[in-house]
């Protein structure tokens, strides 16, 4: 059994530790989910309220979306775990390109 620790005479030590760690991680996932739901409701409420100007609301809801996506990527998609160096490079290159594409289309297209 390659995945058992050699330093302990009890082969179940590592197993119990891993189960506990998994359960703790799952609790963190549920907390992340609650925060994401909360951010979604704030964004919808800000638009439904109709009392704010577009100059405030648009950057505000975009910020909420970015925070929510960070939770999704780092917790739900496990990017906070080790061994995600190459995935981070791929994704952030994509995000950089995305930023440039959106900026370009919004500044050079006119009618």
């Amino acid at each position: 059994m390659t995945n058992q620790p050699l330093s302990s005479s009890n082969p179940r030590v590592d197993l119990e530790y891993r189960r506990k760690k998994n359960a703790e991680e799952m609790r963190h996932q549920v907390i992340s989910f609650s925060i994401m739901i909360f951010l979604t409701f704030i964004a919808f409420a800000a638009v439904a309220a109709k009392g704010f100007t577009a100059w405030f609301i648009i950057p505000f809801i975009l910020l909420l979306a970015v925070v929510q996506v960070i939770f999704q990527l780092f917790y739900f998609m496990h990017m906070s775990h080790e061994g995600h160096e190459a995935p981070s490079m791929f994704l952030f290159t994509g995000v950089f390109m995305a930023f440039v594409i959106v900026l370009t289309f919004m500044t050079i297209i006119w009618w």
Partner: peptide, 9 residues
């Protein structure tokens, strides 16, 4: 997924 990001962008 990095490519998909660019495509959706």
């Amino acid at each position: 997924l990095g490519g998909e990001t660019v495509l959706f962008a």
